[in-house]
């Protein structure tokens, strides 16, 4: 297999994740879309690492991506649940009190 194949898969995952963030109307799905984006970047790390013939830096970076994703999931969900209990909604459009219009 060539590197390009992995990169294409990662690109597809990335785009799917971003599209999910852009189009789904639930904060939890926004978070899930972000997980896909993170997965795609981790996959890129590992693929480049493998095909550059180097050490394991790419795998380590992917490991840290997973750690960050775990932290993001925990905090993100806590925020979503808190938002739900205070506003009764998890639609991103309802959380715009910081916007100016």
């Amino acid at each position: 297999m060539s590197l390009v194949a992995y990169l294409v898969v990662a690109a597809l995952l990335m785009v799917a994740g971003l599209a999910m963030v852009a189009s789904r109307r639930s904060l939890i799905h926004v978070l899930i879309g972000l997980e896909l984006v993170l997965n795609a970047s981790a996959l890129n790390f590992v693929a480049f690492d493998r095909y550059s013939g180097g050490g394991q830096e790419g795998q380590l970076a992917a490991l840290f991506v997973i750690v960050v994703a775990a932290a993001e999931a925990a905090l993100g969900l806590a925020i979503v649940l808190h938002a739900y209990s205070s506003k009764g909604s998890i639609r991103p459009d309802d959380f715009r009190s910081l916007g100016d219009s």
């Binding site: 109307r25 978070l31 999931a73 925990a74 649940l81 739900y84 909604s89 998890i90």
Partner: peptide
């Protein structure tokens, strides 16, 4: 964790 979260909040805003 996400499934848990989805079960704790009602499914709303489904249709984009």
């Amino acid at each position: 964790l996400y499934l848990f979260g989805l079960m704790l909040v009602p499914p709303e805003g489904e249709a984009p």
